[in-house]
Amino acid sequence: MTEDQDDRTGRDPAPAVTRSIRLLDLLAQRGTMTLTELAGGLSLAKSSTANLCLALEAADMVERVAQGYRLGRRTAELGGAYAAQFQQVREFYAVCDASPVLRHELVQVAMLDGADALYLARHEGNARVRLGTPLGSRLPAALSATGRALLMAYDDARVGELLADRVPFPKLTDNSPTDLSSLLERLADARERGWALDSEESYPGIVGVAVPLEPWAPGDPQLALGVGMAAAGTETARIERVATALKEAAAQLTNPFSDAAKRGPRTR
């Protein structure tokens, strides 16, 4: 099938835009790629792919390097602008800095995107831990503490619907749950405690603690606050101390005029 036939069959109203988005997705997933690799990934002629790259390069959406093409600085600006739309993300850094506990920790904000936790903001603190979750990266919601904190907002039936096409879950570590029943047990414990725990289930050697964050305004996404810590030497007392600090931060980041604030702390 030719490119024109493919466009007519799919009835794409803006094929150039669609192809550009697919090209950016490829670079986001794979990193730097040559023109030949991009053309193959898009199933396009090299000449068509080169034209897309030229247009995106002019807009700083991609940049040309010795190894090929990679994402441009404009994509980072857009990602930051997206996150900055939300009041809670804008205030997140100040709240972390003011916390005697969180100021020293690696704290992240994530939202649920399909079956994944998508990371929007990051407070480095002075922790030694450096997780592989830079802004815009994802982890399976079933395995990460932030993902589970996001899933806590749903009942078990809805969780099953959201994750139906991900079962069995990927086994990222020896501790990763692979079936839905194991996840639901962890979510039940999380709802009881008021915070989610990831005990080396998404990264070896990393313990995660996270709490849900109520949307600030109607239409805002459900967010979660999470901390990643080195498993070695991390005792239960520290985990609970961090969890308490996260809950306090979440309370500060909850709109005082929202229904959640009027209800007060949830009973679990």
Score class of each variant (00 low, 15 high):
Glu57Trp: 14
Leu24Trp: 05
Arg122Ser: 07
Gly125Thr: 03
Asp25Trp: 13
Phe169Trp: 12
Ala250Arg: 01
Leu162His: 04
Leu172Cys: 06
Asp25Ser: 08
Ser20Thr: 07
Glu124Gly: 04
Asp179Ala: 10
Ala250Tyr: 00
Ala39Ile: 02
Glu63Asn: 11
Glu248Asp: 11
Glu161Lys: 12
Ser137Cys: 09
Phe169Arg: 02
Thr32Asn: 06
Pro204Gly: 05
Ala230Val: 10
Leu184Ala: 11
Val17Gln: 10
Ala98Asp: 04
Arg11Tyr: 07
Asp7Val: 15
Tyr154Gln: 13
Arg70Asp: 12
Arg19Phe: 11
Val129Met: 08
Ala145Ser: 13
Ala39Met: 08
Ala164Leu: 14
Gln67Arg: 08
Met111Ala: 06
Phe86Ile: 04
Val159Asp: 00
Gly132Ile: 00
Leu44Cys: 15
Ser99Trp: 01
Asp165Ala: 13
Gln67Ile: 01
Ala58Arg: 15
Gly40His: 12
Ser199Pro: 04
Val101Trp: 00
Thr34Leu: 02
Arg148Gln: 14
Ala14Gly: 11
Thr133Pro: 00
Thr254Leu: 04
Leu223Asn: 03
Gln85Phe: 04
Gly233Ile: 04
Val65Ala: 11
Leu44Trp: 08
Thr36Ile: 06
Ser181His: 09
Gly31Thr: 09
Leu56Tyr: 11
Tyr119Arg: 01
Gly228Thr: 00
Ala260Asn: 08
Leu42Asn: 06
Arg122Val: 02
Thr146Asp: 10
Gly205Pro: 11
Glu185Gly: 13
Asn255Lys: 08
Leu180Arg: 07
Gly205Cys: 12
Asp259Phe: 04
Lys46Arg: 12
Asp12Met: 12
Pro212Tyr: 05
Arg130His: 10
Tyr93Thr: 03
His104Ser: 01
Gly10Phe: 09
Thr267Pro: 08
Ala98Asn: 05
Asp4Met: 13
Phe86Pro: 01
Leu139Ile: 08
Gly147Arg: 02
Thr32Trp: 07
Thr32Glu: 14
Val211Met: 06
Ala83Ile: 04
Tyr203Gly: 05
Asp174Ala: 14
Arg238Ser: 01
Ala230Cys: 02
Ala217Thr: 04
Leu225Val: 02
Ala157Met: 13
Gln108Pro: 01
Leu143Gln: 07
Leu213Ala: 09
Gly264Trp: 07
Gly41Tyr: 01
Thr234Lys: 07
Pro100Lys: 02
Ala55Ile: 15
Arg103Pro: 00
Gly208Ala: 13
Gly132Asp: 10
Ala142Val: 12
Thr178Lys: 08
Ala98Ser: 03
Val167Leu: 07
Ala142Ser: 15
Glu161Phe: 10
Glu3Thr: 15
Glu214Ile: 00
Ser48Gln: 12
Glu200Trp: 06
Asn255Gln: 08
Asp116Gly: 03
Gly114Cys: 03
Gly40Ile: 00
Thr178Cys: 15
